[in-house]
């Protein structure tokens, strides 16, 4: 009965983060097994510092007050919620090597590697 959801996060703006983590937490709350594969700019979404201050895409700055008004949870809150719900967070090893990033520059509780990524990509991928 457990539906599997694989999400590929390859962009690094605040909007991208919401698309990824909203879908992930909603799916996980509905008992799906969820894995997110973070690659290239998508790594921003789980970078220790960067994920707390993701940029709003240029020209959309005025949405900032909308996020506040609607009491939309912050990205760090959503990430914590996702991890609590058992969402697997996988950072792409190859991108990390290319960008000279280490595992300790990312939030706690992530997995690194291409092996794990390929195994979770078997179910329907959703590209965000």
């Amino acid at each position: 009965m457990a539906t599997k959801v694989a999400i590929i996060a390859s962009n690094g703006s605040l909007f991208d983060a919401y698309k990824v983590f909203n879908v992930a937490t909603a799916a996980a709350a509905s008992d799906a097994e969820v894995g997110i594969f973070f690659t290239f700019e998508g790594l921003n979404l789980i970078h220790k510092e960067a994920h707390k201050q993701l940029p709003i895409p240029a020209g959309n700055e005025h949405f900032e007050e909308g996020f506040k008004r609607e009491n939309v949870p912050s990205i760090p809150e959503l990430v914590e919620m996702a991890q609590e719900l058992g969402v697997k967070i996988i950072a792409c090893q190859m991108t990390m090597d290319v960008m000279s990033l280490d595992k300790d520059q990312f939030i706690e509780g992530i997995e690194v590697g291409e092996q794990r990524a390929s195994s979770i990509m078997r179910p329907m991928p959703i590209s965000v």
Binding site: T25, A26, A29, S30, E70, N71, V72, L85
Partner: peptide, 13 residues
């Protein structure tokens, strides 16, 4: 109350 999607269902779970 006051929480936006997807928090209501996350909290419900």
């Amino acid at each position: 109350k006051g929480l936006a999607c997807p928090m209501p269902i996350v909290k419900t779970k």
